[in-house]
């Protein structure tokens, strides 16, 4: 029984890390700009498709048609030669194998630019409008992004293989001195968990230990006073939007081996991450992380047959149930501040 509980707990941490990462980016935007960003899921999706695109480039092939041979469906046979390997030899092969980690490096500047362009180009004009308008425009942006991706890449999921060395499951039980093959967990999920932890830690360290971070924290707490002290807080918040886009995009890149991405991938997370943010407390970064892990773990345990035998269907409603209970007991969420979205 111990191994069953342990595995479920590990799985909860793994899910929680993914939730926390997305909720963190959403909270960065809400806490700084005060905008409820429904395009956040689309940013996750764009990150995932950065990985798809990088892989497409890395696996480009030259196609020569051999008219003397026919395929079983009656077309001339195509002979394909990988280009990157032809240029770069073994290193090309390594690049293709590690296309997902390579995509991270490329996604950082791309997502930063997308984020800054979105904020400066569109979202900026909605700060003084009601929240409902902000939701409509960001949701509209999400739909546009989805349709653009769909028209380029089609509607079907595009699998992204993980590096060959990182496939399969790690025997965690054996590491902990237990019998082999009792507690095994996919290596990539462990990497995702670590990655999420590092990104979350880096965001917190950035906010806590840099002057830029101090200014942003101050601006989140009292934007007017920061301006009175001569600081152009809007510009810093624009950069924070870019950073939130990077966080969402990287979460998307790293998720592609776990879930073949299609244009819709961000929407699945959007609703969930809003629940996470509300449970954590609107605008609270530690709240978002805490709630992400809490809901991940609860969802994982609620999916066990033993639990479902007691309360059938609990696995499908647990997150919403917890959200309702927490909002009744603590209307501002676990770590919400006064006055956020209350005026």
């Amino acid at each position: 029984m111990f191994e069953v509980i342990f595995l479920q707990f590990l799985n909860g941490l793994d899910k929680g890390a993914a939730y926390a990462l997305i909720a963190l980016g959403l909270t960065l935007v809400f806490g700084t700009l005060g905008v409820v960003n429904f395009a956040h899921g689309a940013l996750f999706m764009l990150g995932a498709f950065t990985a798809v695109t990088v892989r497409l480039f890395l696996t480009m092939e030259t196609v020569t048609i051999d008219p003397t041979q026919l395929s079983p469906w009656g077309q001339p046979l195509e002979v394909r030669e990988p280009l990157v390997q032809a240029w770069l030899g073994d290193f090309g092969g390594v690049l293709v194998n590690y296309s997902v980690p390579v995509s991270i490096l490329i996604a950082i500047p791309i997502m930063l630019l997308i984020g800054i362009a979105l904020e400066r180009g569109i979202i900026k004009h909605f700060y003084k409008r009601p929240h409902a308008d902000q939701i409509l425009v960001t949701f509209g942006l999400a739909i546009v992004a989805q349709e653009v991706i769909k028209s380029i890449y089609g509607p079907n999921p595009i699998p992204q293989p993980m590096p060959t060395d990182l496939r399969g499951a790690a025997d965690i039980g054996a590491w902990l001195g237990m019998q082999a093959n009792i507690i095994t967990y996919p290596i990539w999920r462990l990497i995702y968990f670590l990655f999420a932890g590092i990104v979350i830690g880096a965001v917190f360290a950035f906010l806590q230990f840099t002057t830029f971070g101090m200014v942003v924290r101050a601006g989140m707490a009292d934007r007017e006073t920061v301006s009175i002290l001569g600081i152009n807080i809007d510009r810093r918040f624009t950069i924070m939007f870019g950073l939130a886009a990077v966080v969402a995009g990287l979460a998307g890149v790293m998720y592609t081996p776990l879930l073949p991405p299609n244009y819709h991938i961000g929407m699945d997370f959007l609703v969930l991450s809003f629940v996470v943010v509300v449970v954590g407390g609107m605008g609270s970064l530690p709240g978002a992380v805490l709630a992400g892990f809490l809901l991940g773990i609860l969802q994982s345990f609620a999916s066990m047959n033993q639990v479902k035998a007691i309360i059938p269907g609990i696995d499908q409603i647990i997150i919403y149930l917890v959200a309702v209970v927490i909002l009744l007991v603590r209307p501002r969420g676990l770590m919400g501040r006064r006055g956020v979205m209350e005026s």
């Binding site: 191994e3 069953v4 595995l7 479920q8 590990l10 799985n11 909860g12 793994d14 899910k15 993914a18 009792i182 095994t184 999920r189 776990l258 879930l259 991938i265 699945d268 997370f269 969802q299 994982s300 999916s303 066990m304 047959n305 479902k308 696995d315 499908q316």
Partner: peptide, 20 residues
């Protein structure tokens, strides 16, 4: 093991199978 449809991550339904 029953699962909902339309989910993106089924991992929480897979872990209980490992040692079942």
């Amino acid at each position: 093991m029953r699962t909902p449809l339309g989910s993106s991550d089924y991992s929480q339904y897979l872990t209980p199978i490992l040692n079942s």
